[in-house]
Simulated scan of single mutants.
Amino acid sequence: MRNDLRIGVAGYGLRRSLAREAHRPGNGSRVVALYDPDPGAQRQARAEIGSELRLAADFDTLLNDVDAVMILTPDHTHVELAVAALRAGRATLVEKPLAITVEDCDLILRTAHEHRARLYVGHNMRHMPVVRAMRQLIIDGAIGEVRAVWCRHFVGHGGDYYFKDWHADRRNTTGLLLQKGAHDIDVIHWLAGSRTALVTGMGGLTVYGQVTDRSEGLPQDWFSPETNWPPLAQRGLNPVVDVEDLSMVQMRLENGVYASYEQCHFTPDYWRNYTVIGTAGRLENFGDHGEKAVIRVWNGGRRGYDPEGDLQVPIPAGVSGHGGADEGLVSEFVRFAAEGGMTDTSPVAARDSIAAGVHATESLRDGSTPRHVPPVSPELAAYFAAGQV
């Protein structure tokens, strides 16, 4: 217990599962303090973490007597809290997305650099078994050199999760192409080995803008796969709904790889499908976690329609959230907070996914005009590439 990393948590809402995962008394880390002004969240945290949990009156007080901080609050609050934690020298996990503007991302990176405080971003999909298995197949040369990556994201619960609270207001997210897409854009970058340099976006608010039933708070049955279908039957949407429920992005990466990302919030099914095409084959996942999920590889020569492929790689089902990704993410953060060094997640890559999402959203809202995506400064790139030691 004495050697456990003492963690303070800001926000005990939608991503509270990360805080629960981080509470491992006697096994490396424990959550000792919480800042969340919601009395209901406070009660739930004490019920799940323990009655000894310290409740901080404000964020500055949270920073007392902790070694590390987990920022799990809504997206638009990340920059202020992250800058304060890093200036205080605390190892800091910021849930994805890092921030909702490129300028705020760069401010967070500069603050970590200037104060030599360890910064970690919660891109847990880099720990998802399906993503790691696809990346290993690419590293092993199963499809040759990557030349294209396509991702289709079917957000089947989108009307429940993203249009009934703060997510639906672009002032809090910039847009769902950034908020939800930051995960997938980061995975595309990781699989392709490069960042986006040029984007063009297209999309709109095509369905949920027609739903006129709005609510100041979440209705009692806000999440109900049975009754909230079809999508136009949704009720109790956020008073402000000005983000897109359908979006598409074309990307040219810095290393010449081409990529596309499609996101839809009113599909009946909920999963991600990646297709990666190389100079000697292609791979594709069917399901992204669970017993039936599999990656199929076609690399044995030309043929017609072949649904099975030349190789099938089952995707192991993890125990913790997101197919086991949350456990891997928290374990890496705890080790990094205590020791520093290299991690599979990357603050610069997190910033690059935001930059691509921001500029794609600007393109989408401006007649699909192409946008160049500027890289982070060379000084910051070099610092974070060295592992923040």
Rank of each mutant, 00 (worst) to 15 (best):
Gly323Val: 05
Val79Ala: 14
Val376Cys: 13
Glu284His: 10
Phe266Gly: 09
Val121Asn: 03
Ala47Gly: 06
Gly204Leu: 13
Thr92Ser: 05
Arg302Asp: 13
Asn64Ala: 14
Cys105Arg: 01
Gln42Leu: 01
Val330Cys: 12
Ile139His: 09
Ala57Ile: 07
Leu205Phe: 01
Ala68Leu: 03
His265Lys: 03
Glu95Tyr: 00
Ala356Leu: 04
His23Cys: 09
Ile277Tyr: 04
Glu80Leu: 11
Pro307Tyr: 09
Pro378Phe: 08
Ser353Arg: 01
Pro225Asn: 11
Leu205Cys: 09
Gly217Lys: 11
Val83Ser: 02
Ala355Glu: 07
Leu53Glu: 03
Met251Leu: 10
Val330Ser: 06
Arg335Ile: 03
Ala356Val: 03
Glu103Cys: 06
Ala233Gln: 13
Asp104Tyr: 00
Ile7Leu: 03
Arg296Glu: 12
Arg371Leu: 08
Asp326Ala: 14
His113Val: 04
Thr174Ile: 04
Ser51Tyr: 10
Gly323Trp: 08
Glu379His: 07
Glu48Lys: 12
Tyr120Arg: 02
Thr369Pro: 10
Met342Arg: 15
Val94Trp: 13
Val66His: 00
Gly321Pro: 04
Pro307Cys: 07
Ser215Glu: 07
Val358Lys: 02
Leu5His: 02
Pro230Phe: 06
Ala57Phe: 05
Asn285Arg: 02
Ala88Ile: 08
Ala84Leu: 14
